[in-house]
Amino acid sequence: MCIVRGMSALGPTFLGLLESRPQHGYDLKRAYDEHFATKRPLAYGQVYATLSRLLKNGLVEVAATEAGGGPERKRYAVTDAGVTDVEQWLGRPESPEPYLQSALYTKVVLALLTGRPADEILDVQRAEHLRQMRELTRRKADGDLGDQLICDHALFHLEADLRWLELTAARLNELSGEVRGR
């Protein structure tokens, strides 16, 4: 699922990167890895598969070919249709993805079903989340704008996990208090 989503963003991302100037697949991979790949660098197979699809759809064209043939010898340029495509992609909202199936959610529900305290899950998870959030905060302080954006994105998502967990723990406590109060 994640891979499919990544793939569908790769095309428009290449188009956007090509807007400044025509580039080789190698340049695109480097630029992509620098700006977007946080964990795994892009595979060359993926780069050339994407470029050939863009070429087939008329979104890029070959601006120059050096001696020897092969896709790695070609320099690609974005077409007008390609620019339109990236603009449309940027203007289209992403479908918000609620992380309904996370292990965290399952743990809390299981705790509830089996009469275990949610507080303890919260405490353990908070400590772990905060450890990572401190690291991201430190990395953000030392990093450039790109690092800051990536770290903020992660920080806000981690915070959202904790807020949900905290609210849930508070609700469960209230609920069990109500039950006991009867």
């Binding site: 908070r126 400590a127 989340h129 959030m133 401190r134 905060t137 915070e159």
Partner: peptide, 16 residues
């Protein structure tokens, strides 16, 4: 009470 704020600290102490 915000985790993003607490992440500026060296460690956290929880009060409940």
């Amino acid at each position: 009470h915000e985790a993003r704020v607490a992440a500026y600290a060296d460690r956290e102490v929880i009060v409940r």
